[in-house]
Simulated assay, not measured.
Amino acid sequence: MAQRANLQPQSVDAPLTQFATFLVLSVHDHPDALRTARATVAGIADLAKNITIRDLEARFTCTVGIGSDIWDRLTRLPRPAELRPFPTVQGSVHTAIQTPGDLFFHIRSERRDLCFEFERQLMDQLGDAVAVQDETVGFRYFDMRDLLGFVDGTANPVGPAVPDAVLVSQADTSGVGGSYVVVQKYLHDLTAWKALSTEQQEAIIGRTKADNVELADAEKGQQSHKTLATIEDESGEEHEILRDNMPFGSPGAGEFGTYFIGYTAQLWVIERMLQRMFVGDPPGLHDRILDFSRPITGSTFFTPSASMLASLEDD
């Protein structure tokens, strides 16, 4: 923990806010584009400060993630031990797909206008050095619920457990103080979901809908989403991740979804969770939430410590 303290982390554990923008960009393969992208991410703290100062109570933050394919060209820093592209996970029915992305910006605030203004200034700086792969605007829905009607993020670590769950330890010296982040954009079939009874929905999720009480795990056979998303190692120790999922959508366009974002100190934890969800445990019994929620993106990034990010300017 001492080495972590010397490397100020980015705000991966910032409080949950009312609004967020999730921005995935690709950097054009040209020296000028790389220089522009490097200078922009190195100076992200100054850009964020320009927005934060407008309303200190709005809890504005921006976290920057860097993808595997561009890491060596953009940073010239040692590669974090587990950094690799998002793995395509092919189940018998559903597939977790991989989509492009070199840079990821997780922009959060209690005010939508601050997220908008930061993104505007960010894109002005990046200019034609980048191409937008995905831009999703999320919002908090009632009492932390997703658009399926269930409370989301219940399994998040709290208090002193957060740093151990999300910040890379000294065992991964090239990534210490940083965090791996996996993002997926899911679209919901709400018509089919609403055709289920509340009891059927609760069995799929593994919690009660009204009061968010955890249901017992099935002794064998089909497991709930809650069970399949709980990851234990060979010794039986549970490994937590920090989710900052948000609903998004447009009723007029008939689009309803959840943007999954998971921060973790160990990338294998989320990768194993995806295997359990899409392949099933036992294999063949996939997470039934996937029958109603379809992933249309999938990317992995690493968020270096704030000090390492700022050091890129020296390059």
Rank of each mutant, 00 (worst) to 15 (best):
S68E: 12
G127A: 08
L285I: 02
L187Q: 15
V176G: 05
M1Q: 13
A14S: 14
S179N: 10
T300F: 01
G91P: 01
A5G: 08
P80I: 05
M273E: 00
V24E: 13
A155D: 12
P9W: 06
L290E: 00
Q98Y: 09
Y141W: 12
S293Y: 00
S235C: 10
L148S: 14
D146V: 09
L187K: 15
E313A: 15
G206N: 03
A265E: 02
L114V: 02
A229G: 01
I70A: 02
R140A: 15
D244L: 03
D55H: 10
G298Q: 05
F142Y: 15
A58E: 06
D124M: 07
D315A: 15
G252T: 00
G206M: 10
S250G: 04
L126Q: 04
A33W: 07
P304I: 08
V130Q: 02
V137N: 13
T154N: 10
Y259S: 00
E238R: 13
P251C: 09
S92A: 06
R73N: 07
E117G: 05
L285N: 04
F150L: 12
L312C: 09
F60L: 09
L56G: 12
L34T: 04
D164K: 14
Q18E: 14
C62P: 02
D281L: 11
S11H: 10
D102H: 15
G280F: 02
Q133C: 12
H286P: 01
Y263H: 02
A310R: 14
K185T: 15
R207A: 06
N6K: 13
Y180S: 13
C62I: 08
L215H: 07
M273Y: 03
I204F: 08
A306D: 07
S11Y: 08
M308G: 04
F278D: 00
Q201P: 01
R79G: 01
A39H: 08
F150S: 12
G206E: 03
E232V: 08
G206C: 11
G65D: 05
V182E: 08
L309W: 08
V168Q: 15
D72M: 11
R145E: 12
A58I: 04
N245F: 06
E57I: 12
F19G: 03
A48T: 09
V183L: 14
E135H: 13
M308T: 14
W193K: 12
Y263Q: 00
P15M: 11
S311A: 14
V166N: 08
G257S: 01
L312S: 09
K220D: 14
G280V: 01
R76A: 15
G159Y: 14
